[in-house]
Design a protein around this nucleic acid. Structure first.
Lengths: 343, 343
DNA sequence: CAGCATACGGAAACCGGTGTCATCTTGCCT
DNA sequence: AGGCAAGATGACACCGGTTTCCGTATGCTG
């Protein structure tokens, strides 16, 4: 055999033996203890590098009585957002010993809370990060608290104190979007709300009303509908709103997917966008840029938010220093134009 | 205090003490050892239920010298696919003690292989699941093998033996799609390939050529382009192909996102779809159904594939029994029609 | 150079499980 | 009834780290 293959990984004992010191000293080197001889440290580090020693995280977790797994719990229909969050978390835990464990759940399953409890308990998670909409579930937060598992929630509103929250300012962003429409001359603006019971949905609705109010307008129920954030519900809502008389000249949809549905509805009715109808969405997911015409939408900084959230989780000391509120901005694309005066 | 709060979780020792048996016996109960008295088992189980004991996975991992973490390594631009895979894996490990650790990586980072090695080594992963395109990287497979980490790859072609592979039959599916076009009367069919060096790209290209050949046609380089699976590359390729003379009456794009780009290009040139141009994509991602017109595309069963892959990982015994090849099917939507004879 | 504080290294216990092996019952056979 | 096999249970070491506690080497001061 050309290459003496070790079937078991080197342990701290091997390092200690080979460098002629005790386990304890090696442990001090690993944990960067300050009271340690320079010469000893270098010798041990050389041995570690030579034999490729990597500390066993399970043994560490056992001895330290804490582990290095953080959980991401979500029940989110928006794949891009979930992946953006994963990316953001990874950015925060890069070069740490933490790892990310994911757990998609079904919000509608009656056993959801029990499942999550089992998950956290079984894996002994260090902390969990909750994504909207499930982050709004206070029962879940209570379970985490009871299990002694740190918790950071992402959301669209102030769900918790700053050390356990990262939020975007949906309400204000929607208000700005609507103000842009009114400044272009739109007076009849339709609204598609998100599903009931979602903070993101109610925040966006409040922002919409704010926007109307500041232009002296008010919400006409004939051109308002509620969707469930899915394409089909946007399509249905669009069909209804575009049958109203007089027809809206613009529609704000609480997310991009439903906005794409509105676009389909408009096309089916032969209404051209943006000439006869302006559309604004929310989230700036991939679909926004890829449909025709490209969709004006509100973008919120998913990745940095997730990074901040993860930092709050793994370094509670600095949790208060991490920003808690992130600003969204309007991405102006071709789906918006001034209203058609000839109509 | 109304509720005596334990600050530390109960351990196997607590269970042993409370039920008057030894640790070992409790361990036997947990592991469902067959040689155990019925009465003893029930007594111990009662105590476990009463105090809410959950075995510590880190301690178990340490003693067993294997842990219960499976890794998902991916560098995938398609969020929906990654999330579908996560869902499929979760389905397989539900009700087991396994957990899913995710690791997005950057294919272009020079340190990628080193990063992944560190990741696997540090977390002592039980096994990893590789998604395309990174699953095609044999260097990575070698690293896993060297680290003694089981490996299952997902892919579009036969990358490995059946116990370590789950594949879809892209080539055949594309051939079918193209045959459909030719059966409708299309004779001039453009092609947008995926990026060089990707098996999925070359399989789909082979399938495309198969399809042409079976209708007695061959690939015209004037209406063939290579993209990188991103929207913009599809847009650029579409612009080029649609400037060709004579213009193609149909275009097959190696994925949906590029197909959406082709659609934009057609719109910009005032070419109507499907009347003057038929378009077919691949993957059946969300965008396919949400653009206008809805895109005809090839769907491959992501979730069941991921479930099968995870089963191969966690139960190597039955790995060979899990299916390795999954069939894709054509989803027929409005983006395809018979060619316009008047042109 | 004595005396003392300080820095460092080592032995042993511990974290919470599992494996090995010995012991103790018990039932069954001759 | 005695012998023996099989089944049930427990004692103890061990997985690979960290921590406690203590002994020793070292440096500094007077």
């Amino acid at each position: 055999m050309p290459d003496e293959k070790r079937d078991t990984k080197p342990t701290i004992n091997d390092v200690a033996r080979l460098s002629g010191v005790s386990k304890k000293t090696v442990s001090r080197v690993i944990n960067k203890s300050p009271l340690l001889g320079q010469a000893t440290r270098e010798k041990v580090e050389a041995v570690i590098a030579e034999i490729g020693y990597v500390p066993n995280p399970q043994a560490r977790a056992l001895a330290l009585r804490r582990n290095f797994l953080i959980g991401l719990i979500h029940d989110n229909p928006n794949a891009q957002m979930v992946l953006g969050v994963q990316e953001g978390i990874l950015e925060a835990i890069r070069d740490t010993e933490f790892a990310l464990v994911v757990r998609p759940v079904d919000r509608h399953a009656p056993t959801m809370l029990e499942d999550i409890r089992r998950f956290i308990e079984q894996q002994r998670l260090y902390g969990v990060l909750l994504l909207p909409p499930i982050s709004e579930n206070d029962g879940l937060a209570a379970v985490c608290h009871e299990l002694g598992c740190t918790l950071v929630r992402m959301g669209s509103a102030r769900l918790d104190d700053d050390r356990h929250l990262v939020a975007s300012n949906d309400r204000h962003a929607v208000k700005e979007a609507v103000s842009w429409l009114t400044s272009l001359g739109h007076r009849r603006i339709g609204f598609i709300a998100g599903p009931e019971g979602f903070r993101s949905a109610s925040e966006r609705e409040l922002g919409f009303i704010d926007g109307l109010n500041s232009a002296g307008l008010k919400l006409d129920p004939a051109i308002a509908a509620r969707g469930n954030y899915r394409f089909e519900s946007g399509l249905a809502a669009g069909e209804r709103l575009l049958s109203a008389d007089p027809r809206p000249t613009a529609i704000f949809s609480s997310n991009d997917e439903m906005a794409a549905g509105v676009l389909h509805a408009a096309r089916a009715k032969g209404i051209s966008v943006p000439e006869q109808l302006s559309i604004i969405g929310f989230d700036d997911t991939a679909i926004a840029a890829h449909i025709w015409p490209p969709l004006t939408t509100v973008r919120w900084p998913i990745v940095p938010m997730a990074t901040a959230a993860a930092h709050k989780l793994i370094d509670p000391g600095s949790a208060a220093d991490q920003p808690s509120l992130f600003l969204s901005d309007l991405v102006r694309r071709a789906s918006v134009a001034a209203p058609d005066r000839t109509t």
